[in-house]
């Protein structure tokens, strides 16, 4: 399959270019082929969102790309500049945010804000755009007679809003959708609906999907490959089922242990599993492995130098001295 996106050595910083520089993402690289679903897993503050924003030129003020490249269908997104990015954003790559309520314009009817995108990217006139918007809304599971396009965002439930945001994301037939915590604010039943919707859209439209999350569960139906990030670096990557069933990096192991099952057994009760400590301060990262202070398998070498990429199994990469 054709390669769609190649990210190489992407490094994103915040703050002063000289001192007090915070490295939110350092040296991240991965490949994505067309129609592939990958999951990026990690705690909050580990750089997942910065990574996504950097690729689309959406870093908040004070953030900049120090080095690296993100080549999408032959063009480097990082050197493209705003006019070029505007043509790609929403048309070829779309982003779904965590908070659907904030992604929607509260004073526009759903149909109108869907039409805006189609008018901007597909040069439709407003009538065509409105009709097309209705069709797309049907694709994300709204029935034809629901008149959802006449609704204002505040009249919708959280799940409905997220569907509208997804409809906006797929309206122009993108090749890649980046979903940043798409279900974090929804209840379990609606979460499942949204994830299943994303998965069916991915299959139907041959979308590539990058799913960014801190809950491993939601990656199961979608992701073929998982990257685990910690303190701005990828610490492990591999095929989804292998990473979830037999994690290699102590961080992934800890994170997955915190996940809870739904079957009462004696051993499963209190206290709950957690990784001791907190994620490190990105402004003062340790010299060695960033996870070392919280790691139960810490060795001397971990504090001395940064871990290198190792391949304990053919398809899997892990950045941990345990596997040297």
């Amino acid at each position: 399959m054709a390669s769609l996106l190649k990210v190489h050595d992407l490094t994103v910083c915040y703050g002063d270019r000289t001192e007090r520089q915070i490295r939110a993402v350092s040296g991240v690289g991965f490949d994505l082929v067309e129609g592939e679903g990958i999951g990026i897993l990690g705690e909050s503050g580990c750089g997942k969102t910065s990574l996504a924003s950097a690729m689309l030129g959406l870093l908040p003020r004070g953030g900049y790309v120090l080095r690296g490249s993100a080549v999408f269908r032959g063009t480097d997104l990082l050197t493209l500049g705003e006019p070029g990015l505007q043509r790609i954003r929403g048309a070829e790559i779309s982003l779904i945010h965590q908070e659907p309520a904030l992604a929607l314009n509260p004073v526009l009817r759903v149909g109108d804000q869907m039409a805006e995108i189609l008018i901007a990217h597909r040069r439709m006139n407003s009538k065509q755009a409105r009709n097309e918007a209705k069709k797309v809304l049907e694709q994300v599971g709204f029935s034809v007679d629901s008149n959802i396009d006449q609704a204002f965002p505040h009249q919708l439930s959280g799940g409905q809003k997220q569907r509208v945001v997804i409809a906006q994301a797929i309206a122009c037939g993108p090749a890649l959708v980046i979903a940043d915590e798409p279900v974090a604010s929804l209840d379990a039943v609606v979460q499942m609906e949204i994830i299943n919707l994303l998965q069916s859209l991915r299959k139907r439209l041959n979308l590539a999907l990058i799913l960014i999350t801190h809950t491993p569960d939601i990656l199961v139906p979608i992701a073929q490959r998982i990257l685990v990030m910690y303190a701005g670096r990828i610490v492990e990557q591999g095929p989804a089922h292998q990473v979830l069933e037999a994690p290699l990096h102590p961080y992934t192991q800890g994170l997955l242990k915190c996940g809870l099952d739904l079957f009462p057994r004696e051993s499963s009760v209190r206290p709950l599993a957690s990784i001791p400590g907190e994620p490190p301060n990105l402004a003062a990262l340790p010299t060695g492995c960033a996870f070392a202070p919280r790691c139960s398998d810490r060795m001397e070498v971990c504090e001395a130098r940064a871990p290198i990429e190792l391949h304990p199994e053919k398809t899997r990469d892990v950045w941990c001295f345990k596997y040297e």
């Binding site: 705690e43 915190c258 996940g259 209190r270 709950l272 957690s274």
Partner: peptide, 9 residues
């Protein structure tokens, strides 16, 4: 998940 576990405890 990890913070959630810490808070719950």
């Amino acid at each position: 998940l990890s913070t959630q576990g810490q808070m719950a405890n």
